[in-house]
Simulated scan of single mutants.
Amino acid sequence: MKTINYFLFIGAVSMAIACGPGTNDSGENATNRTEVKENQQETIQSETKMADKSANAVLSAANGSEVSGMATFTQTAEGKVKLVLSVNNLTPGTHAVHLHENGDCSAEDASSAGGHWNPTEDAHGKRGENDFHAGDIDNLTVGEDGIGSLVMVVDGWSIGDGQDSDILNKAVIIHADADDFTSQPSGAAGSRVACGVIQEKV
């Protein structure tokens, strides 16, 4: 019996040494995995929320024109903003499109919209080439039927974040003439023939 007890004692000691006090990190690993999963979910939710942000501007006539139209803005998951612009009753040819600093189209000539949106105080130019205003967009080509459309994905804009890049409460302005992308301060684009205030979709 003593011999059996002795071997049982030795076995128990051996198991204790083999197992030892050790450190069980299974709980820590589980916690880490949970934190990683939560962070991933937060990132996905944040990107989804950002991508869901959208705004539009209903364009109305200015300076006696008969222009109407709509500009829609959608935040992409990459942090850019997609602009889709469509207009009607605009004279055939090429017309400058800009964002102006004030979301105010109350003046008959749309002068209440102020100058180009330019928080960085850069020179006017063509977007993506040298200096340009945050509100510089492009020229819109209109057919003989008076209908025109423009689609752009713009880096450097945001929707509703309150930063200098935020396009909300700015005005979309369509001009009578084309932007030459050179003349200061607004590309010699002529009078304002349409105006719309950018407002977030709810």
Score class of each variant (00 low, 15 high):
D131I: 06
D131F: 13
E144S: 11
N56P: 04
H95E: 07
A123F: 13
T76E: 03
L83F: 02
F73S: 01
V81L: 00
A134L: 14
G103D: 09
K170V: 10
N63G: 15
G162Q: 02
D109K: 12
F73Q: 00
M152Y: 00
A123R: 12
A113P: 06
G160Q: 05
A61Y: 06
I147W: 04
G148L: 04
S165V: 05
E108Y: 07
I167H: 09
V97K: 04
E121M: 14
S68T: 15
D166P: 03
V87H: 01
T94Y: 03
G146H: 14
D104V: 08
L140G: 14
V84P: 02
V81H: 00
A113H: 02
S86H: 09
D104R: 06
A77T: 13
D161E: 10
S158D: 14
T72I: 13
H133E: 10
G148T: 03
G93V: 11
V81G: 00
I147Y: 13
S106K: 05
R127T: 01
G162D: 02
L168W: 05
I159N: 01
G148E: 01
L85D: 02
G143T: 07
S149Q: 15
T76H: 03
I137R: 00
D166L: 00
A77L: 08
D145H: 04
A57L: 03
G156C: 07
W157T: 00
E129G: 00
L83V: 02
V154W: 01
R127I: 01
A71H: 12
V67R: 11
S86L: 10
I159K: 01
G125D: 08
N63I: 12
N89Q: 08
G93Q: 11
K82W: 00
L85A: 04
V81S: 00
A61C: 05
V142L: 09
A62R: 14
S68F: 10
W117M: 03
T94A: 10
L168N: 04
M70Q: 10
H116I: 07
I167D: 04
L140W: 12
A61H: 09
E121C: 04
N88P: 01
L90D: 04
S149C: 14
G135P: 06
E144F: 09
H116A: 15
L90M: 15
D145S: 10
K80D: 02
D166H: 00
V81P: 00
A110C: 13
K170G: 13
Q163K: 14
S165G: 09
L99A: 05
A57M: 04
A71T: 12
E108R: 05
G160Y: 06
